[in-house]
Design a protein around this nucleic acid. Structure first.
Lengths: 196, 196
DNA sequence: TCGAAGTTCGAATCGTCGTTCGGACACACG
DNA sequence: CGTGTGTCCGAACGACGATTCGAACTTCGA
């Protein structure tokens, strides 16, 4: 495995190629499964040789970590920025869920890999950061939800329900379908909020 | 691999042992992951030798199929029986979701394995039955849901939301927690039903 | 254009793991 | 009891697949 080149032009090339590997791996792994996809197959789908992948990642697991980072970090960052803005609680929840569903839909493959590998993520030490980010995001959702007037159900259950709905979206969403990510998000929020 | 013994006393012994293997495999695989658990490890956890497993199952995948059958078939059967009974739509939905959540909670390990291996289940020909059962169950839920006065969201979205909530329950439910399976189910139903 | 840095190749390596199989033990039942 | 049927053991096999590595090729920057 190599490190990122210092020279400018090459650095950009490196980043681009690396990202291609991450996205391609997410696509293949989401469809065929991580363990069911050999590095050879993955490389073939990417149009490179098997060994080439090790130029960017020191191993299969590092690549998996990169996929998860790519999913969790931007989401957490954008969510934090959103929450920092002023807004009415209900509107804030709506915007947060919209952002969230939009991410799930845009990075559907990443999301499917993430869910598929949950038991791996929940274990090793090298996954600490990913776990922390996920936890932080869920905390954020929890706080936003707590400020809202929700239907009369246990708040912890409402949070669990929301997590379930949104995450599950990756399983059935189809880009060509009749539901946009915003409409999906609004539907979820409508289920949670109390009738006016 | 052997077939079920013909003699009565041995047949019962065989069934019991086989079930132990199924349950043990579900437990180990739910925690450590299917691919991450070697047959050796699994056998060790069961207190038998590796080869012994092949007395009951012709291979790892057959064992996985057995776990899924054990999850999906009883659920579908009970759900069908429930739906056949007379009841008001809303009550019928409530009872169905209770039954469903109860199964998810009782067979939590099976459920986690099922979700972990979704991409496998969605592919091979040997999985046709499992897929059909899952589909039939979801149809059933859909029909029951359609007869209810739900909150004003797209019905297909309501179904997806319900599937997401209930399935996700396996990820966070803890037997020692403060929520019983019935209370969880009722919470989910309350979110879906229109205010009176 | 030259040299250094970066990228890719692909065959060889090395472990791991699923599966097999022949035999040893155990139980049921006449 | 004895015999055949059922259960389980555990070493050995064979395949597969992640990873390595040195050579060949490309690109950058002066």
């Amino acid at each position: 495995m190599a490190t990122r080149p210092t020279r400018k032009a090459l650095g950009e090339r490196y980043d681009r190629r690396r990202q291609e590997v991450v996205d391609g791996a997410a696509r293949e792994w989401a469809r065929r499964g991580v363990e069911q996809t050999s590095v050879q197959q993955l490389a073939e789908a990417l149009g490179i040789a098997a060994g080439g992948i090790y130029h960017y990642f020191s191993g299969k697991e590092q690549l998996l970590i990169a996929i998860c980072d790519d999913l969790v970090n931007p989401l957490l960052e954008e969510a934090r920025a959103l929450v920092a803005r002023e807004a009415a609680p209900e509107e804030r929840l709506r915007e947060l869920v919209r952002l969230w569903v939009a991410q799930v839909v845009e990075r559907q493959d990443h999301m499917l890999v993430f869910q598929q590998q949950r038991h791996v993520i929940d274990r090793g030490a090298q996954w600490k950061d990913v776990r922390a980010s996920r936890k932080a995001f869920e905390r954020l959702v929890e706080q936003v939800l707590e400020e809202c007037a929700t239907r009369p159900v246990d708040p912890r259950l409402a949070l669990a329900a929301l997590l379930g709905m949104v995450n599950h979206t990756a399983q059935w969403y189809r880009p060509r379908g009749h539901l946009t990510s915003s409409r999906i998000a609004d539907g979820y929020v409508d289920l949670l909020l109390a009738a006016e």
